[in-house]
Write a protein that binds this DNA or RNA. Structure first.
Lengths: 344, 344
DNA sequence: CTCGTTACTGTAACCGGTTACAGCATCACC
DNA sequence: GGTGATGCTGTAACCGGTTACAGTAACGAG
């Protein structure tokens, strides 16, 4: 591997000083046209590319920021990254991604390694109650927290309206006349899962419907756990007439299990999910779900972060909540009186 | 935002030289225990974290590498990143991710910005025939190409056995007695899509089955295009008895459309996909698909890259092909004689 | 007591950029 | 001719680490 030329070598070839090279590259300060041409020719011929680390060192700007994600599966992850990446690149920033953090200690180590590499941080905390998320990020950079349960006073945060979304899904089921509702919960330590369960319970309470603890099925946001929960539900003596799954992946698994037991959706059991993943509308019947604009969520987080980076710490902390809206499809609506059909 | 302390400030507080701080941090060279304790105490009390950019500058190692991805949707992306990230972190490396590149010129710009930021590169080229992928990466770092159609002589490459996978899916359908087969193709400029189509055509040819051009439906790897193709197939005068979709997302869409038209799967139309996404087994019926261990693919690519980084350019170029294996489920198998049921 | 060896620590030069400041022409104008 | 303004360019100090090399102290052997 041949070493790339440095700015000093380019300077000597072009017969100018390093300052001039820098000025040409960054369009700063006056440079005579003939000089600029000479410099550009030298750069071109030598295949010179500025060394980012060196540049960051002196400018104190890396033009990139870090993303810390917990163990996230499925569509959510890619949508989020897509939203962030597009927004970041629009402003000339790059992304350092570190995913699949379950251990907070390990996350802390990664955080250290990020010092001097990033101008800001988007952190998605698993946000369980026991292990408190690291409220202080020891780099001197702005941080935006994503869907952390307790919005830190120190950092900006953006959360999904999990509770409201779960509420509207549950109320939708109640409005359809269901009184015996089950919920397939998410991982107990996950704050999104927790809030969705909260919304579910609240809606039941507000409508004076008792919450049978036996109808709170465990799950882990994966398809298989939904399948198991669905099987368990099918086996129940006093079967619920409606099921709310804390996410769509589990709803899919549940749907498969219920179908396998010969139950009809929604006649025998109505089913609603959360996330509105792309395939939700292509299931048979279409899956009623709660929609969150994930890519937009990522874009918003990015814009917040960029504002904080540009603006310094002067601006007050923002705490934003992005809405989650119910999308009704065939898995809940009575087919004899469909609210919406299965057509996408 | 308070500025983090530099190594020189720590040195002055601890009453030692910068060299000693560095030695303590990197476990290099001899340091007296009492000195080490003093240094560690100073580091702790000042909250000192080494500045990565500065370190990279002098060591010529960034301990991170870049990933360039084209516009990729769905499960594939997250699985790939997960595989890469876990393997990378195991070796202490970080990930710079840049996704959603459709424009090669833009990708080139990103590439430049990566100079001095990464020790290596994993590049997934959209790999269309017309726009040749950038064969030369102007950074002096090793590159691993992912699923590029023409494995470059300059770089290592890892490809998915798209052709073989498509072949076995098609042969499976032929073995079941189907003679009129349709295919829902992927984006024409995508090399994966191209190879899958190739495998399909080859299998038909080898079995002496004519390929009706009217049965090659366009698609773009998204669910909706599969739905449209499915609707078109249902409307055909001389309907095919089997459909092979170039990926599972389109198969899901197609399944939905066929179902919507009252066609039974697999009795009226058999259906197979590609990728074996997690929900494939939870559809009703379970979707026959071609399985690729995506996370493992990412891990392999990472290991290759790390080997190249550690080993220098001495080793010969590797060109690896990861297998794609057929998974048969209810969407193709005759239910009166099921090869495998719908149970996950 | 002298010398060599070992164990530890400090000095200063790098890595490759940016930029404050100074220097030098050139030109207009008095 | 002097004077100041203007436009362009170069010098050198920094950013925050690493590390070759030199220096010092202590200790054992001869």
């Amino acid at each position: 591997m041949k070493r790339n030329p440095s700015i000093r070598q380019v300077a000597s070839v072009a017969g100018v000083s390093v300052a001039t090279i820098s000025r040409v590259l960054n369009d700063k300060g006056p440079v005579r046209d003939s000089t600029r041409d000479r410099v550009l020719a030298a750069i071109e011929s030598m295949g010179y590319v500025p060394h980012s680390a060196a540049r960051s060192l002196s400018t104190r700007r890396t033009m990139s920021f870090g993303i810390l994600l917990p163990e996230v599966h499925g569509e959510f992850f890619s949508e989020l990254i897509r939203g962030i990446d597009l927004a970041a690149r629009r402003s000339g920033y790059h992304l350092l991604v570190s995913s699949s953090h379950s251990d907070p200690a390990e996350a802390q180590a990664v955080l250290h390694a990020l010092h001097g590499r990033v101008d800001g941080l988007i952190v998605m905390t698993p946000g369980n109650g026991k292990v408190s998320p690291p409220t202080r990020f020891p780099l001197g950079v702005p941080v935006v927290e994503l869907s952390s349960r307790i919005p830190s006073k120190l950092n900006d945060s953006i959360r999904i309206d999990n509770r409201g979304g779960a509420r509207s899904a549950t109320e939708h089921l109640l409005d359809l006349g269901h009184r015996r509702l089950a919920m397939i919960c998410g991982p107990p330590e996950n704050s999104d899962a927790h809030d969705r369960q909260l919304g579910f319970a609240e809606a039941l309470f507000d409508h004076g419907v008792a919450l049978d603890p036996a109808l709170l099925l465990p799950g882990d946001f994966r398809e298989l756990s939904g399948f198991r929960a669905g099987s368990a539900i099918a086996d129940l003596q006093h079967r619920p007439t409606a099921v709310f799954a804390a996410n769509d992946a589990m709803a899919v698994g549940c749907l498969s299990a219920l179908r396998g037991r010969g139950l009809r959706i929604p006649e025998d059991v109505a089913l609603a999910g959360f996330d509105d993943i792309p395939i939700a509308r292509f299931l048979t019947p279409g899956l009623t779900s709660v929609r969150v604009a994930i890519a937009e969520l990522g874009a918003r987080a990015t814009e917040r972060l960029l504002a904080a980076i540009e603006g310094g710490s002067t601006s007050p902390r923002h705490h934003e909540i992005v809405p989650a809206t119910l999308v009704v499809r065939g898995s809940t609506s009575n087919p004899t009186n469909p609210l919406r059909g299965n057509e996408p």
